[in-house]
Write a protein that binds this DNA or RNA. Structure first.
Length: 271
DNA sequence: ACTTCGACCTGTTGGC
DNA sequence: TGCCAACAGGTCGAAG
């Protein structure tokens, strides 16, 4: 489900009902996610007030006085907030009960997601400490990418999906941004010009912002926490459209595998 | 230091 | 309809 816009949509969707509220109970039904949920999490968080809810890369951070819960949705994770106590289903792994009656539920069929805890400032946690700039900040721009790409032979698509280079660009939006910037996804990172990187950085920002505005991409089962679907999929230009005509020039969009990931591009526009 | 590859786990889809 | 292989939005960590 989640790329950065979906994670951000999720964060915004769950924030209001639970921010500033006290956790009265934590129910953990499945500890085995990507890494095991820390066994002491329940005792740590009972009685704690959720002081802030932020995001770094695709991690959602729950800030408490005693530390920070770090949550990643993996590929199939979802968070929902509700008041009526719906019976837990097969993949509903964790419930956070709040003093105002709201329940936050984590659901993840594939269990690639993660729920961790740190007493340190979260940016010091090993998972977060070496992540690149957030794509929507000014630190992320064409000059930065151009510098970072020196000596890199990997395909530019792989390069921008590397979280050490830039946070939160996944398979869908990488393909979309390269299409917008008219760059072939297999170009070596070091061969992309400064000017092209400027276009690419701009494209990444534009696409992510627009996707967040639209509430994320609806792919298979992505739903905002409200239960309403995101609408960005209507705006996708290449992802999942192999064989269809390019919107700009009419050429049949082609599909490749780059680094074991499906990659769609226009062989004419992205020469 | 950079790059590739396997791993985690379940559900869905498409071909025969 | 059934079975099986391939594939799916992520990303870490080992090995080359």
């Amino acid at each position: 489900m989640p790329e950065l816009p979906e994670v951000e949509t999720t964060r915004l969707g769950i924030k209001d009902p639970i921010l500033g509220k006290k956790i009265t109970e934590l129910v953990i039904r499945q500890y085995q996610l990507r890494w095991p949920i820390p066994s002491e999490l329940r005792s740590l968080l009972k009685g704690q007030v959720l002081k802030d809810l932020t995001r770094r890369a695709k991690y959602i951070l729950f800030h408490f006085k005693v530390g920070t819960l770090i949550l990643h949705l993996g590929m199939s994770g979802r968070l929902s907030v509700f008041k009526d106590s719906a019976l837990p289903k097969k993949h509903d792994h964790l419930d956070m009960l709040f003093s105002n009656g709201y329940i936050l539920r984590f659901t993840d069929p594939r269990r690639f997601g993660a729920i961790l805890f740190t007493k340190e400032p979260p940016h010091k946690h090993p998972l977060l400490s070496s992540i690149g700039p957030e794509p929507l900040t000014d630190d992320f721009n064409g000059a930065y990418l151009f510098e970072a790409a020196k000596g890199r032979k990997v395909a530019v698509k792989i390069f921008i999906m590397n979280s050490k280079i830039v946070a939160g660009v996944g398979n869908i939006y990488a393909a979309e941004a390269l299409f917008m910037a008219k760059i072939h996804p297999e170009t070596r990172a070091s061969d992309v010009t400064h000017k092209q990187y400027q276009k690419l950085a701009t494209a990444i920002k534009k696409i992510l912002l627009k996707a967040i505005e639209k509430g994320g991409t609806t792919l298979k089962d992505f739903m905002k926490p409200s239960g309403r679907p995101g609408y960005f999929s209507l705006a996708l230009k290449v992802y999942g459209k192999a064989g269809k005509p390019c919107e700009r020039c009419g050429t049949q969009l082609k599909s490749l595998r780059i680094g074991q990931r499906a990659t769609v591009y226009c062989p004419t526009c992205q020469a």
